[in-house]
Write a protein that binds this DNA or RNA. Structure first.
Lengths: 213, 213, 213, 213
DNA sequence: GATGAATGAGCTTTCATTCAT
DNA sequence: GATGAATGAAAGCTCATTCAT
């Protein structure tokens, strides 16, 4: 009843009676963290952005840290489910990897504020919230490594490649390119070129066939 | 071999009469920023680490931000000169790219604290100090793109590759892998595997020859 | 014997249609104030302890202060009526004073939480709620001074004694000893010794007969 | 050098280079705690009263609690040493007890603000800072019990009296009377009467010689 | 130049109280 | 009457920066 109008409005999947304000605070958190970074974000600014009183934040979240943690969890959860659903439609691991690259860039393009938060704050947090360590982010990375393993099983991907290193290499490249897109204002075409180029680089390499490496 | 040119001091190349304290503060900054992150680093802790009084910091640096900026500038300057010198010894662009990958990882391995600062804080700062935007970091990235262009001129690298996107893809991958190495404690062998794998991936791709992509 | 008149409810004598919740809040107030002290007691904790909603408190009490005031009033009212009733059974003023000492200690022993609130918070409140100044507490003190006056009239108590100072001296001594009993866990025998000793001290003094003072 | 001018200015015995501000904050703490009570005292008000910035408080004290604790420690330390010195001049234990009663009341009369803090906050703190429990306060109480024991040894005080209960009874009475003096504005004569009456009560009792108790 | 005590703006968080349901 | 989610003022404390010595 309370949530009938939410539909596709925002990331995440809040449940329970407080869903509305919870989600508004989460969305506000994404915006403000993106604008100012976690440390320079003021709780009062998040409250204002969410249209609630400062104190209301603390009904739904233990503290400022928890807002960020929940932003990670809910956003990554939503991204993962979106990505997995689309990958199912691709026939083979190599096509899936291409699709993954495209989706990563497109999803973040659609959610620029979220992109900024994930790129910058996820690193900070990986370093400082070791007790938490976003399990969902590892889950996301493992989508890549699983695709590589499957490709190797099917004989499409060279067996010398380490899936564990590849997943980080690809993620790092994707992350750097979307960060760059977010920071500069290169327009949508940059996303397209980035996707195309990354597919080419990671799948076929850059050295001309026949050249010794 | 690696440190032959650095004298007994440390990274960077401080000049002038204040060289000693200036450099001590800079080194202390790297350590403390690595340990705590920029926002949680206390100026007084940097001062203590450097063995100077709090107020002395402000004789050499305008403010806390400037310590970080100078850490970037001096460290990147030193890295760039080291890298360029070694790349000169490689015969062709493809070999140079391989050398670059190895050096990046090895240099950061040798300077773990610096690695942590560059990886995490450079992102933050890229985002917030747009007025500054570390020119040296772009210079470092451009080493890669110049190598790609040269490779394309010499016909060793496929012309479809965009050097501007490639430089960020490679940097992102390197960065992610060294961050992972820094955060987990995987030992030196992880650096080696990372370098080998990245060379393979970026130069030859992961799809088996003959497979359609 | 001691509780015969109190029915199943508790201290005080709540009347009117709200009697139940009113009393439950009052009792909860005593418990929570005893546990945490007035300032550290949370209205929401009192509500929880009373099994009512936070807002309900404000139907029965103007604010948090008023809960404490009513705790004083109702508790002291109950204590006074209990004490007066028992004193009637004693034949002379000196015996009545002895009885008073015993009853004070025994009543608080039976209501330890109330004891803690009265002892600690009454002082605070005496100091800050000058506008209120618990009339009932003065009434309680005056029981003592009236007994002294009566004793002087009957020639049993030396006329040099000021009833006004004596009442405070005795109350202070009683209060300090019950506070000490509440804070340490000395068991029931400490109450007995305290009563005996106080009777001896206040009635006969501590100096041996014959010694010059 | 820095402290040459302090003389009798304020309680306590601050040492070290920061003595001046430390003592000013302590004195300000006494005043403000007396005026408002610990919980309603604002750190900023103490700072203003001491003529320092808010932050300066935290150079000298860990937090607001510690100001109160140090007020207890230093004040009681000062009181104890003053009292002990004077008691030495009295010839026998009974005379010493009389002197103690007079001094207690006179010292607090001279330091009214301190009196209010000790009386009201010491109780609160006894209850809530069990970890701390002002050792000095116990030391002060023990002055009394030691005098009683000595009096019993010399045969001047009846052996039935428990020094441990007597010390609390006397302290409670003194405390209540000085609280009353502080709260009402009874003038100096009330102090005198209180002292006289307490001496009479505690030493000789209130019951006329010859009356059976 | 070097010091480090002092500053005070500004933050997160708490919680008594209200009021729409 | 009863509820409890929401409010928002207020306070303790931190720490980058200054400046008298």
């Amino acid at each position: 009843m309370k949530n009938e109008a939410r539909g596709a409005r925002s990331l995440g999947d809040p449940e329970g009676p407080h869903a509305d304000k919870y989600q508004r605070i989460l969305d506000a958190g994404i915006k403000v963290f993106a604008r100012k970074g976690f440390h320079n974000a003021r709780v009062s600014e998040i409250a204002a952005e969410a249209g609630v009183a400062d104190g209301t934040i603390y009904i739904y979240f233990k503290n400022k840290d928890e807002i960020l943690i929940k932003v990670f969890e809910e956003s990554l959860g939503w991204i993962i489910s979106r990505v997995k659903k689309e990958l199912d439609q691709e026939p083979d691991p190599v096509r899936k990897i291409k699709r993954f690259i495209w989706m990563h860039l497109e999803l973040l393009e659609e959610n620029q504020a979220l992109a900024e938060v994930l790129q910058v704050e996820l690193r900070q947090s990986n370093k400082f919230m070791k007790e938490y360590l976003p399990a969902r982010w590892l889950e996301y990375l493992d989508i890549i490594s699983e695709l590589v393993k499957e490709g190797q099983r099917q004989g499409m991907i060279t067996p010398e490649i380490s899936p564990g290193i590849f997943k980080r290499a690809l993620f790092g490249a994707l992350d750097e390119l979307s960060l760059n897109w977010v920071l500069t204002n290169k327009g949508k075409s940059y996303i397209k070129s980035s996707a195309e180029q990354l597919c080419a680089i990671f799948l076929k390499g850059i050295v001309k066939p026949g050249i010794e490496v």
